[in-house]
Simulated scan of single mutants.
Amino acid sequence: MRALPQLHHSDAFPPTSEALDYPNGLLAVGGGLSASRLTDAYRRGIFPWYEEPQPVLWWTPDPRSVLFPERLHISRSLRKTLRKDAFKLSVDQHFEVVMRRCAQLRGDGLGTWIGDDMLAAYCDLHHIGHAHSIEVLNQQNELVGGLYGIALGRAFFGESMFSAETDASKVALVGLIDILSRGGFRLVDCQVESEHLNSLGAINISRLDFEELLAQTVDIAHDPGIWHLPATCGELL
C-alpha cells in the first residue's frame, strides 16, 4: 500500500481519484475534525472513519451507496408498523444522545469510531445547523431509535442509526425522507452498501456520478424550516 497523504491543519484534501482501491476509498490521514474541515470533506464526498486515539482517516469509497428519496421502499411490515402509530417522533431534540446510542448499540462504545473527538465535532456541527437527528420514542417517551447525519445544501449525508425496538430505525429513516422530500433534497449518502440499506431502496453508483450529484446539490440552499415531523409515526403515511 502506498503512503497516504498526511494532512496538517490547513492542508487541502488530495484529489479523490487518488484514493486507494484497498482499503476501498482510503484517501488521507490527519488534519483534525474542525467544523470547516468536516464541511469541506462532506462537500467533496469525503468522510472520517477511524478508531480513536489513532489519527483521523478520510474515506471516499467507490462505488457509493445512495438512497434517492423518491426510491424509498416501505415494506408491508414497515407500513403496518407506521399504521399502528406506536412511535412518537422528534427532530434535533436529543442529538448527542442519538450519537451515543448509535455507538453503544453497535458495540463500539465511545472509544472507537464514534469516540469523544467525533462526538464533540458532530455536536459542533449540530449547534451551527449542519448536523441533524431524527428521534423515535415509544409511548413511555423512551428513546428507542434514531439516526443522525449532515445536511449541506440539498444533500444529506447519513452517518449512523440505531434501533432498540423493532422497526424503530426504519421509522426514523421514513421520517428523514419526509423532511428531505419537503425540502427538495436530491439524495441521502449511505456511504457503503449493506443489505439493510438495499432493502430500503439504496443503490450503488460510481464515485464520479456521486461527485457530480454533489456538485449539483451542495450549493443549493434548503429551507431550515423543514426540520420538523408530525407527533406520531402514523401521520407519515
Score class of each variant (00 low, 15 high):
D116N: 12
H8Y: 13
Q54S: 15
R2E: 13
A35I: 12
D189W: 12
G31F: 01
P63R: 10
E18Y: 05
L119R: 13
L119Q: 11
V66N: 04
H132C: 10
W227F: 12
G145Q: 11
T16Q: 09
K80Y: 10
S77L: 02
L143T: 09
C233T: 02
I134P: 03
R37H: 09
Q139C: 02
D108T: 12
S34N: 08
Y122F: 14
A103P: 09
E135P: 13
S34Q: 04
S36A: 14
M99P: 04
G115D: 10
E159G: 01
S34G: 13
L67I: 10
K170N: 04
P230F: 05
I74A: 06
Y122H: 15
A12V: 01
D189K: 13
C102Y: 03
V98Y: 02
K170R: 14
I177N: 03
G129I: 08
L119F: 02
I134D: 04
C102P: 05
R106H: 15
A221C: 10
R100A: 10
R43L: 07
K170H: 05
L89R: 06
S206M: 09
L152D: 01
G153N: 09
E212V: 10
D108G: 13
E52Q: 15
H196P: 07
L137G: 03
A28R: 07
L82M: 07
F210L: 02
D40Q: 13
L147P: 06
L213H: 14
R106F: 00
L119N: 06
H130P: 00
E159M: 03
D116R: 15
L20Y: 11
C190L: 08
L208N: 09
G184K: 13
R64M: 01
Q6R: 14
E165P: 00
N204R: 13
K88N: 13
P224H: 12
S206H: 04
G225E: 14
Q6C: 08
A12T: 10
G234L: 04
H222C: 13
M99K: 02
I74K: 05
T232C: 13
L89D: 05
L237E: 14
I128C: 08
Y148C: 01
A35P: 07
G109W: 06
H94C: 12
D189T: 09
V98G: 03
V188S: 03
G158D: 05
L38W: 08
D108H: 13
Y42H: 07
I128V: 15
S77Y: 02
P55I: 11
L236S: 08
V97G: 00
R186E: 11
T39G: 00
G158E: 05
V56S: 02
L237A: 12
E235V: 00
L197W: 07
H8Q: 11
H130C: 10
I203V: 15
Q54A: 15
V56G: 02
R101S: 06
E142L: 11
V174H: 04
A168D: 02
D189H: 15
G184P: 12
I205D: 01
L67R: 09
V97P: 00
E165Q: 15
D62F: 07
R44A: 12
S160F: 01
L197A: 11
